[in-house]
Design a binder for these strands. Structure first.
Lengths: 196, 196
DNA sequence: CCTACCGATCGGTAGG
DNA sequence: CCTACCGATCGGTAGG
């Protein structure tokens, strides 16, 4: 008897993980209990274990999904023939899109990855490192091509990624700011900052 | 009999809070126990309560200190006669200095403020909002004076503050990057991004 | 400063 | 899907 409804595109497990992401985002992973998650889904806590293996498995599921999405975009970008600045612009716009579409999951991946189990933690950090390295390479090429100012590439990348992480604060401004305005303004600010 | 040593400038309570900040930064507030804190100080957990009132009181102490430091700097800045861009530059350099000098405390204030008790949480968020508002005002003045490009002021401020928050990731690069290079590069990138 | 200990809450299992 | 329940861990107190 399923009280938790699966939909055409989402299994029962997916529905639970979606609820979990929202809960973790609001309360933090460690401050979210399985009893709270169960209540939000209208069942008792032990019933959840018919669909998921453990609390940390849900966290792993969320973090892996996010890391894979970003990683896949970076790989597809590496195959494109674009200037370095155009690639950075695409990365910025992708981050905005991800944040709007999968806000809870991206937020959780950014905040609670440190609670991943040892093996998953290593894999996650490796993926993140690879993402950073790929971006550093793009910036290096841009400096070499005289597209980008001669700022330390590592600093350029960390500054841009940190600025984009700040998208998580923009939820509360959604009513006042149009999404496209937001996106175009941040692209303008960051690209002008790095251009030669 | 004090096992925890007070120094000339720091009371026993300060020494405990400093240790707590380090612990909270490493493990997160909710994942740090009073038993862990006691162990790092070489005493048993109940002994801590001779010097501090509660776990959340220490968090409040840390967050309040950080918020006050940033707030005081902003107030002193408002009294100075400087261009808008020069004020933004001073803010950026102050953030870098704070992050280097009080890394644990700033990190904890940025991450774990949501675990503050209701009253302290309200006060903290009010201080942060006031800080943001003051910065938005500086940017508005800069746009009006044709110093700063016509980007939405709220977006400028959130982007800069988010980028500066990313300073917390720079610890691991300390060996490879000189502090002043780091500071000058981020100033260059962000200021060029906003200048007209 | 310590030992002893309390009530609350946690993730998860047994069994149906 | 539920009820009943376990062992572990938590923040904090009592009493000396």
């Amino acid at each position: 008897m399923s009280k938790i409804k699966a939909t055409k595109n989402n299994s029962t497990t997916d529905v639970i993980c979606k609820s979990a992401a929202q809960l973790f985002r609001t309360n933090g992973f460690k401050n979210s209990s399985m009893r709270m998650l169960a209540q939000s889904l209208g069942v008792e806590a032990p019933s959840l274990y018919n669909h998921i293996g453990s609390k940390s498995e849900m966290l792993q599921h969320i973090c892996t999904k996010v890391a894979n999405d970003f990683g896949a975009h970076m790989v597809s970008l590496e195959e494109e023939e674009l200037t370095a600045v155009a690639k950075i612009e695409k990365i910025i716009r992708f981050h905005v899109k991800m944040m709007l579409k999968h806000f809870d999951e991206v937020y959780v991946a950014n905040h609670d990855w440190r609670y991943l189990d040892a093996a998953d933690l290593t894999a996650f950090l490796q993926q993140r490192k690879a993402y950073e390295t790929a971006m550093v390479q793009i910036v290096k090429n841009g400096i070499h091509n005289k597209e980008i100012a001669n700022i330390h590439p590592q600093i350029v990348v960390l500054t841009i990624l940190s600025a984009l992480r700040g998208l998580e604060f923009w939820e509360k401004y959604k009513q006042h700011l149009h999404t496209k305005t937001l996106e175009n303004n941040i692209v303008q600010l960051l690209l002008k900052g790095i251009k030669l």
